[in-house]
Computed example of a mutant assay.
Amino acid sequence: MKSKKSIIETAISTLKLESEAILNLLQHINEDFVKVVHAILKSKGRVIVTGIGKSAIIAQKIVATFNSTGTPAIFMHAADAVHGDLGMIQQDDIVICLSKSGNTPEIKLLAPLLKQSGNLLIGMLGSLNSDLAKQADLILNTTVEKEACPHNLAPTTSTTAQLAMGDALAICLLEEREFNTEDFARYHPGGSLGKRLYLKVGDLAAKNEKPSISPSASVKDVIIEISKNRLGAVVVIADEKILGVITDGDIRRMLENHTNIENITAADLMSINPKRIDKDELALLALELIKKNNITQLLVTTGDTYYGMVHLHDLLQEGII
């Protein structure tokens, strides 16, 4: 078993090699890269991404990134392509073929078939002298000096370069399409990511009670209202106008400073100009305001009208944090 120092050195060496490989891609962002972006933008079809072995796994990730950022894409395994899956390719589709060597048997068989069908063939490859390079209409060069594997065999640095090139392509397409957060939310409606992008403050406030009390209410009534609604606060309202808010912290501070509370009213306890947020704002903004102001709840309004309240716990339960 290697020493702790040796393990750390190997890990650092691996990361350095892979980071250098990514930086070396900068010199390969050229005219062909721009043509690939323009071709995909103009295409009426989909992007078919294919590969064999580890390149096939990277191809699947690139497809997932394309689909989630507005570029319709399908994964096609190179080995399956020649056994029937070529039927998934339609006339207007563009094909991106990933291969380090560009000379594997499956790729050498597949490339001419793709050319015969008339689809634009893009080679993301690590050898400009390969069979795939000769067949491809455009090339995304992901050449690396060596793999991180000490035997220079296991695809490591080369697949990292492919992954990074795929990300660069996806982000360029995203920006050219002016793909925004609303679009992203449509493609990611599930899970905490989706909620951060589409969940509105009003959706959360609607699930809670609307604790409110008159300015003349006694301390006892204030405590009962706060306890009953389990939001840690109550809004003071008169003539449907928000006057202020009383939190459980205000109650504690009042009890620390007063022994006689019989004549104290809600108006005496409330904090004026409470932090508030419109019901149509994103819940993510509510979280930012809560953090910024070091509070645990926000008043939710529609215009100047009291709509409800949202608590830090609501954001926790929805996975916004």
Rank of each mutant, 00 (worst) to 15 (best):
P105W: 10
C97V: 13
S101T: 12
K108D: 11
A133R: 06
A81Q: 00
D93R: 09
N129D: 15
F66C: 09
A64M: 04
T65G: 07
Q91C: 12
I74Y: 13
D93T: 06
Q116T: 13
D92A: 11
A81D: 06
P72V: 11
L132A: 00
T104M: 05
S101L: 10
V95M: 02
P112N: 05
K100L: 05
K134S: 14
T104P: 01
L132T: 01
E106T: 05
P112D: 02
T71H: 02
A78W: 04
D137I: 10
K134Y: 12
F75R: 00
A78P: 02
M76I: 15
S68F: 08
S117C: 09
I122D: 04
S127H: 13
S127G: 08
K134N: 14
L113M: 15
Q91D: 14
A64Q: 04
G102Q: 09
S101W: 10
Q91N: 14
E106D: 13
H83A: 04
D93K: 08
K108Q: 15
L132M: 06
Q135P: 02
D85F: 12
K115H: 02
G102L: 10
L113C: 13
L121F: 12
N103I: 06
S101E: 08
K134E: 12
L110A: 01
L128P: 01
L114D: 06
A73N: 07
L110S: 03
M88V: 15
G118Y: 11
M124R: 00
V95N: 00
I107T: 03
I107R: 00
H77N: 13
L132K: 00
S101G: 09
L110V: 07
L132S: 03
N103Y: 03
L110P: 02
G84A: 09
V63Q: 05
N67R: 09
T65Q: 10
D137W: 11
M124K: 00
M124Y: 08
P105F: 12
G126Y: 08
K100I: 01
D131E: 15
V95L: 01
D85W: 06
T69P: 01
L109K: 12
S130F: 09
G70I: 03
M124H: 05
D93V: 04
D131L: 14
D131R: 11
F66L: 11
Q90M: 15
A111H: 00
V63W: 03
P112A: 02
G126W: 11
M76A: 14
T65M: 07
N67V: 08
F75C: 03
P105S: 12
A73P: 01
N103C: 11
T71C: 05
D85L: 07
L121E: 02
G70N: 04
M88K: 15
T65C: 10
L132G: 06
L114T: 04
L121R: 01
S99D: 00
T69E: 05
I89Q: 06
Q91G: 03
A78T: 03
I107Y: 00
S101Q: 07
S117F: 11
S130N: 07
I74A: 13
E106H: 06
L98E: 01
